[in-house]
Amino acid sequence: MKVGFIGTGSMGNLLIDSFIRSGALQPEQIQVSNRTQQKALDLAERHPGLTVCRSNTETASQSDLFFLCVKPGDFKPVLDEIHEHLRIGQIAVSITSPVQIYHLESSIPCKVAKIIPSITNQTGSGVSLCIYGSRIQEKDRLLLESLLSFISRPTEVLESHTRITSDFSSCGPAFLSFFVEKWIDAAVEMTGADRPSLNALAGEMLLGTGRLLTEEGFSPRQLQERVAVPGGITAQALSLLENRLDGLFHQLITTTHNKYDEDLEKLDNTFGNVVNRPQY
């Protein structure tokens, strides 16, 4: 199976590196193209055997399955470029959340899916969110999920829930890292504790907490109740967080959804098919 990647930016690189490192794909199976060819050449130098194509058309036409790893504003030009060179049996996979299945199916003749990866996939963990188009058959779904299972836990979601699920699976590592960074900053300033040691402690804590939530069956509330003794230090600190963070997470979700809706409206206008948007 030949697998193509159009776009070798941050997430394109992450997927390629992760697939090769995990053994899901060999470099010889992969072909790539990128607007800045040097980035693709650097990737080939890192993974001998990987093919750098001269154009997006070459990458798409010679792949059984190809990933579209480009920004929302670049999608329409790329799809217009490759449209006439695609076959019905190929699978095109977008990793860009605002790009909708109806944008893809109205623009190219092949099977389409949307996969939202996470930086956690770099460690072979975390989730890949999966949304499938109407042309995807069961064998195609199994192929995609088998490939993704090497680097993540593939999880099918409703397209209408793309944004909220991405908040947790893809944006979540940045949100949690921000919280931890501010916590460590305060600790270093107030106590003189060693930053590298606190970074390591926080990382192990996050790793263990994740395992308690996924492997041991704890809910977040149950975990708080197990750690916080009534009247104790943790309970008092949780009370502080409850008061100070009241309403913050509603604002967080509103912010990410507003940006998503803004990008979606721009895409609808670019693709010229606003009237075809499904009503959820």
Rank of each mutant, 00 (worst) to 15 (best):
F5G: 06
S10E: 09
G12C: 11
D17H: 10
S18L: 08
F19W: 14
E28A: 15
I30F: 02
I30V: 15
Q31S: 13
V32H: 00
R35N: 09
Q37F: 01
L50D: 13
L50E: 12
V52L: 02
C53Q: 04
R54S: 12
S55R: 15
E58G: 04
T59N: 08
S63G: 10
F66G: 03
K71G: 08
P77T: 11
V78M: 05
L79H: 06
L79G: 09
I82L: 03
I82M: 01
H83C: 08
H83V: 02
H83N: 13
R87W: 05
R87V: 06
I95C: 04
S97N: 08
P98W: 04
V99N: 10
Y102E: 13
E105S: 15
I108F: 03
P109L: 03
C110D: 04
V112C: 15
V112D: 05
A113V: 11
K114L: 03
I115D: 00
I116W: 01
P117A: 14
T120W: 01
N121A: 03
G124I: 04
S125A: 14
S128M: 05
S128G: 04
C130R: 05
Y132P: 01
S134D: 15
D140E: 07
L148Y: 09
S149A: 11
S152N: 06
E156W: 02
E159S: 04
E159Y: 02
H161G: 05
T162H: 07
S166I: 05
F168C: 09
S169Q: 04
S170W: 00
V188G: 11
G192L: 01
P196C: 11
P196H: 11
N199W: 11
L201H: 01
A202W: 02
G203M: 01
E204Y: 15
G208Y: 00
L212G: 06
L213N: 10
E216S: 11
S219H: 02
R221Q: 12
Q222F: 01
Q224N: 08
E225A: 04
V227P: 01
A228D: 15
P230D: 13
I233Y: 00
Q236A: 14
L241Q: 14
L241D: 10
R244K: 12
G247Y: 02
L248H: 08
T255C: 04
T255I: 00
T256A: 10
N258M: 07
N258G: 08
K259R: 14
Y260R: 06
E262W: 00
D263S: 14
K266W: 00
V274D: 03
V275M: 07
P278C: 12
Y280S: 12
